[in-house]
Design a protein around this nucleic acid. Sequence first.
DNA 1: AGGTCTTTGTGAACGCGCGCACAAAGTCGC
DNA 2: GCGACTTTGTGCGCGCGTTCACAAAGACCT
Lengths: 233, 233
Amino acid sequence: MTQAPGTRRDIPDATVARLPVYLRALRALTAAGIDVVSSEDLAQAAGVRSTGLRKDLSHLGSYGVRGVGYDVARLSDEIARELGLQHDWAVAIVGMGNLGHALAAYSGFATRGFKVRWLVDEDPEVIGTVIAGLTVIGFDELAMVAGDGLIAVIATPPTAAQDVADQMTRMGVRSILNFAPCVLQVPEGVEVRKVDLATELQILAFHEQRGRDEDDDAARLGVHAARVAEAAR
Amino acid sequence: MTQAPGTRRDIPDATVARLPVYLRALRALTAAGIDVVSSEDLAQAAGVRSTGLRKDLSHLGSYGVRGVGYDVARLSDEIARELGLQHDWAVAIVGMGNLGHALAAYSGFATRGFKVRWLVDEDPEVIGTVIAGLTVIGFDELAMVAGDGLIAVIATPPTAAQDVADQMTRMGVRSILNFAPCVLQVPEGVEVRKVDLATELQILAFHEQRGRDEDDDAARLGVHAARVAEAAR
DNA sequence: AGGTCTTTGTGAACGCGCGCACAAAGTCGC
DNA sequence: GCGACTTTGTGCGCGCGTTCACAAAGACCT
Ligand SMILES: NC(=O)c1ccc[n+]([C@@H]2O[C@H](COP(=O)([O-])OP(=O)(O)OC[C@H]3O[C@@H](n4cnc5c(N)ncnc54)[C@H](O)[C@@H]3O)[C@@H](O)[C@H]2O)c1
Ligand SMILES: NC(=O)c1ccc[n+]([C@@H]2O[C@H](COP(=O)([O-])OP(=O)(O)OC[C@H]3O[C@@H](n4cnc5c(N)ncnc54)[C@H](O)[C@@H]3O)[C@@H](O)[C@H]2O)c1
């Protein structure tokens, strides 16, 4: 590695998006009692090519041992550090409907560096109720307690999402995960990631149809070939 | 357009991933009573650049009118056709826990070309119960009724996901949306898309930390500059 | 009917990310 | 200790996607 400690490294977005997958695979290896892994095996577990994995890891320094592989614990720590997961991040879920309930009850956040700390809604009927051990609060209350580095999850209807995003950014939130199927306008410096299930299904539908059309083509070509053969004799 | 009707067009993956967003924006315009839109305005609504939007649309043919813009209804139809949304697609949700319940109750699928037709679980306690108007069934029952073009949504714990995927592919499913945080191995020709919330949050955490570090750097540089200034006088 | 003006569609340049090939480095056997 | 073997780290080329610049096409005004 030619990287001085403490120096800012610019890691490609594509690599950053894969680091969580590597981290998950590494945790699974730890749980299985494996403490050294080759790039080939780890790549297999993460569903990528080994050469790509090595290039990704090279961006955070050279923590592998040639002829041996990577120390699972060491690499886990390095990736976690790079992702900023030494400490838990506080999460606020906004919109406690069907989806908000499921998210509040989800145990997968706590094991991966996040603590759902606030549940927020607008409906006076919902505010004050207890969900998964947390009392639902309103925006005014959140504005008073929200600290730096809070991550907001928007699970309101799309009609309310922009308004919610505006309020969150006003109180200093710079990271938003949006489940509402709509485009959010946010100020410079605020990062939005979206999860859109219907969009995912529509992409699947496109390929499903394409596969079906290709089958049709194959059938047509088969018929055509048969006709040619018939005409030829 | 230099494209003969009925010819297979190869549309870039990146474009396919954006078509659903355009379609959603177009539907909103229809609802607002707008029937002609410029690439500039549509791009704004979709959160992309107008030049990129036009290039995307050019892949499906030239349906715009120069000097005017695009006919909203016409373009909606063309995109829906391209995505294979003339008819609804049947969806089976596997794993009726917290997330499965929320998905089954979600109204956003029906309005965007999908019909949740089967709810599947393994637990005998859950099989036979009615959720959102549908009776939960087991795999054996699904295998008997599942038709061609079925899209499977996996909402089971990650430990069960691979097994579920195997069973689904065996019964001919070629499109899977996976919510379990794990990598799925599937045969050639089967398309898997994954939704991993913890991964999304970790990507946000990375940028959040990076922003924080940059603030630190700015502060440090400020201190440094002050010291330099002090030393200079 | 002709001119102007708006907006589309596309060729070309650019940058990024992926895959390949290979050298460097370190381990293990003898 | 030395050689063979394993596995990492990286320079390079290629293909894809995004952006830019501009010409073509049609509407609208006079
Ligand atoms: N349910 C799902 O499985 C699912 C799946 C994908 C996407 N989504 C999307 O997630 C969002 C939530 O879905 P849902 O099914 O939970 O909806 P829901 O109607 O059940 O719940 C919405 C909640 O948001 C609250 N809310 C409304 N406006 C608010 C505001 N301004 N501030 C704070 N809270 C507000 C409401 O009081 C309600 O509790 C929707 O945008 C939906 O499209 C849901
Ligand atoms: N709850 C959330 O908000 C949330 C968010 C993100 C991801 N996830 C992921 O989604 C998945 C489901 O989460 P959940 O909270 O609903 O879990 P859950 O434990 O509440 O429900 C899991 C359900 O799957 C069923 N199941 C288990 N094995 C099965 C099998 N082999 N075949 C069919 N059904 C089977 C169980 O009977 C149960 O009903 C998990 O992988 C979780 O990590 C959940």
